[in-house]
Nucleic acid binder design. Structure first.
Length: 744
DNA sequence: AACTGTAAACTTTTT
DNA sequence: GTTTACAGTT
């Protein structure tokens, strides 16, 4: 807990008090950065319950799991203090809420409740298949652009029929055709994409009076966080639940709207008062988070947006430190300067978890990571989705998906020949045709393959064996005893990883990245095990193994990058500006303040987009409590090309009246520290070494061989086994020295 | 059918 | 600079 939070907890401003004690009727809270939004929301929920509202009648929707988790925890703590409980309270992300609703009622709208949630890669496969099915030239039709069109349609609640009716030109008509084919594929595979979770829920609430009634009856009080980021479909969902009782409370800040590109409709928040004409509006303008200079800087910046209602932003905290601007020669030096500042602040006592480095595009993370590693500075890159995008993890998950949903052809195709079983492209194409002809899934179609149908003997044998393995898992998966007896979800995951042959496949190749893959598979098993434990605590009724697997896959499909931000972690967080929304840190560095990066080059010529870039920068600046560092590099290498850059216009806008202390580069006066000359000294157990990728670590064990000696090194990121001659380890200090930051 | 190497396309931002 | 796609080889 930080000081400002305690202050807020003890005494609320009049405006905060008004929002917290509001019970009946629509409420709009316009919450500036750091205005105690989360406090207000959580206290309001606690207040509702204290006033006799049953916890299960309350639904609070957020955008990330992390936000949901934090809200839930804070409400629980507040209620405990008052000896109240929150049993049955729903705090969830929009997507997870919809997924659960469709698990209950999905058969009424998508014909199944055991659907799979497709991620971007799955969507891509499905889109490709749809384009092929429409007999369109796939060199002219790129899955990405078609998917973008479909997604934006779904965000506006436009189905394939409507899309077709509205299409006037050839392009539109073709997209409509692909849209329909894509939908057919998804329905045939018992799959939904991210947008479907929302769209199908909205459609279900619209067409099914019973479901709508059930939702309206149960959720008497609705609360939506980050309302400026909702799209039309989400508005419809919220509106249909709240239509009758009108107890809808939305919280947001139009100045922090940064998701227009994915369909967020800012008019939802701007026109809330028109939708709910009797709405109470509470503006929260006082910033409890950031010191004076930071608040002023942010206010100066956002004032440059023309399409905006001016609002008062102020703080009663001290002026604090001036934000610092640094221009460095290259992105390398930029990264090093940021790390240096982080080290300096750490030495002054700032906790690492209270520091963050923010950037516009993920590509910038690499240099920063390198710099942090070289310094041995603990850091984490908030990229929660990256783990599940790895091929070995996707493969393992595809096996699990096939287990709960045998109709998932996308999963089937991904793994039918992985590890290789002698089922090649031709056999798979043939099988696909057979399945299509019969109108069954590809897995089912295996039962009909034979030499007579033109399959080779080898492929027939392999396929039958594959199908029988899958079948065995399904049988075991569906019978409760055998799995509960085996114990758990983790056991099941482990079993599938082993029996699928994935484990053996990656184990037999001895390359360094195969080892990593193997470790990742192990990590997946631990993730399942962790998930299982959490499930055991949260749920009232004991879940069956199959339910657990469903929930696990759902959880995995809906993780976001921001979820990887672990508040307990003793590490600096590196993440995109988007992922930083809703978070706060003592020290924030924003890198890459250059024209073309922030603002991004694709926004340079369009005013609406430029204003969104400015809001994004505003979000970044307002994450900082006490220290803000803004940097750029005078030359930057992107896509292999090095170019000179121009300072971001946002820097100029913020600088206005010399608010920002310009620090000359020379002031740092960094002697060109050449890397220490290649060490003649031998690496021994206990040596501290530096690796290009893993950073600084301590040698735990060496196995000497004439060729291919292996070392076990404990790095910040974990223990790695490396081949000495390939790893190119640089000796930092030898075995006798024991002082090394944080690692014993 | 499986593996290997080279060409080409590509990057905003994400649930 | 990185990932993906495809062609050519075994």
């Amino acid at each position: 807990m930080n000081m400002s939070m305690d202050a807020k907890a003890n005494s609320l401003t009049d405006a905060q008090q008004k929002a917290v004690t509001h019970i009946q009727g629509p409420l709009l809270v316009l919450a500036g950065p750091g205005s105690g939004k989360t406090t207000v929301v959580t206290k309001r929920i606690a207040n509702l319950i204290a006033n006799g509202v049953q916890p299960w009648q309350i639904l609070a929707l957020t955008f990330t799991n992390k936000a949901a988790k934090e809200m839930r925890e804070r409400v629980f703590t507040l209620l405990e203090e008052q000896n109240l409980h929150a049993r049955g309270l729903t705090v969830s992300t929009f997507h997870a809420f919809c997924a659960r609703l469709l698990r209950d009622w999905g058969d009424r709208i998508i014909g199944t409740t055991t659907f799979t949630i497709y991620d971007t890669a799955d969507q891509r496969s499905a889109a490709k298949a749809a384009i092929r099915a429409c007999n369109l030239n796939d060199s002219n039709w790129k899955p990405a652009s078609v998917l973008a069109a479909i997604s934006s349609a779904k965000n506006k609640l436009i189905d394939a029929d409507t899309f077709e009716n509205e299409a006037s030109d050839f392009y539109g008509k073709s997209v409509a055709k692909i849209y329909r084919a894509y939908e057919n594929i998804l329905r045939g595979n018992d799959a939904v994409d991210f947008d479907d979770l929302l769209m199908k829920t909205a459609q279900l609430l619209h067409k099914d009076a019973e479901v709508k009634q059930a939702m309206q009856d149960r959720y008497q009080y609705l609360m939506i966080d980050e309302y400026q980021d909702t799209n039309h479909t989400q508005f419809v969902i919220a509106d249909s639940i709240a239509k009758n009782h009108r107890n809808i409370c939305v919280v947001g800040d139009p100045d922090q709207s940064v998701y227009a590109w994915r369909g967020a409709d800012i008019s939802n928040i701007l026109e809330f008062e028109d939708q709910y004409s009797d709405a109470t509006v509470v503006p929260l303008g006082r910033n409890f988070r950031s010191t004076g200079h930071i608040v002023e800087t942010s206010a100066k910046l956002i004032a440059f947006n023309a399409q905006r209602k001016d609002k008062k932003l102020y703080t009663e905290l001290d002026d604090g430190n001036m934000p610092t601007v640094l221009s460095l020669e290259s992105e390398r030096e930029e990264a090093e300067a940021i790390v240096r500042e982080a080290v300096r602040l750490r030495d002054e006592g700032v906790l690492l978890k209270e520091m963050a480095v923010l950037y516009r595009v993920n590509a910038l993370s690499r240099v920063l990571e390198d710099a942090f590693r070289n310094e041995g500075m603990p850091h984490i890159v908030a990229r929660g989705t990256a783990f599940y995008a790895r091929q070995e993890i996707k493969q393992a998950l595809s096996y699990l998906r096939l287990l709960v949903n045998p109709n998932d052809d996308v999963a089937f195709v991904r793994i039918v020949n992985m590890p290789t079983r002698g089922i090649g492209a031709t056999s798979i194409n043939r099988l696909e045709q057979l399945a299509q002809m019969r109108g069954i899934s590809m897995l089912e179609a295996i039962s009909e393959v034979s030499k007579e149908r033109g399959f080779t003997a080898r492929s027939v044998t392999s396929m039958k064996k594959f199908a029988s393995t899958c079948h065995q898992w399904q049988v075991d998966g569906r019978s409760d005893e055998s799995l509960t007896a085996a114990g758990s979800l983790a056991d099941l995951v482990e079993r599938v990883v082993r029996e699928s042959g994935l484990e053996a496949f990656y184990a037999k190749n001895a390359g360094e990245d195969d080892l990593e893959r193997l470790q990742n598979l192990e990590e997946l098993v631990s993730a399942a095990s962790e998930f299982e434990e959490r499930l055991g605590i949260d749920d009232e009724q004991p879940p069956t193994p199959l339910h657990m697997l469903f929930s696990f896959l759902e959880h995995v499909a809906l993780v976001s990058d921001a979820d990887a931000v672990d508040p307990k972690n003793g590490a600096v967080t590196l993440m995109t500006l988007h992922a930083a929304k809703g978070l706060e840190f003592d020290f924030v560095a924003i890198a890459g303040l250059e024209e073309g990066v922030l603002p991004h080059e694709r926004s340079l010529f369009e005013n609406d987009q430029m204003e969104e870039e400015r809001r994004l920068c505003y979000v970044g600046v307002t994450r900082a409590r006490k220290n803000l560092l803004l940097t750029n590099a005078r030359k930057r290498t992107q896509r292999g090309m090095t170019n000179r850059t121009m300072g971001s216009r946002f820097l100029r806008e913020m600088a206005g009246s010399s608010l920002i202390e310009e620090v000359a580069v020379e002031q740092w006066d960094v002697p060109d520290a050449d890397p220490p000359s290649p060490c003649e000294q031998e690496i021994t157990t206990g040596s501290v070494v530096r690796h290009k990728r893993f950073g600084v670590g301590k040698v735990q064990r060496i196995i000497r061989r004439t060729r291919g000696s292996t070392v076990t090194v404990h790095f910040q990121g974990g223990v790695k086994h490396l081949v000495l001659e390939y790893a190119k380890l640089e000796l930092v200090s030898n075995g006798s020295s024991t002082s090394f930051n944080g690692i014993a």
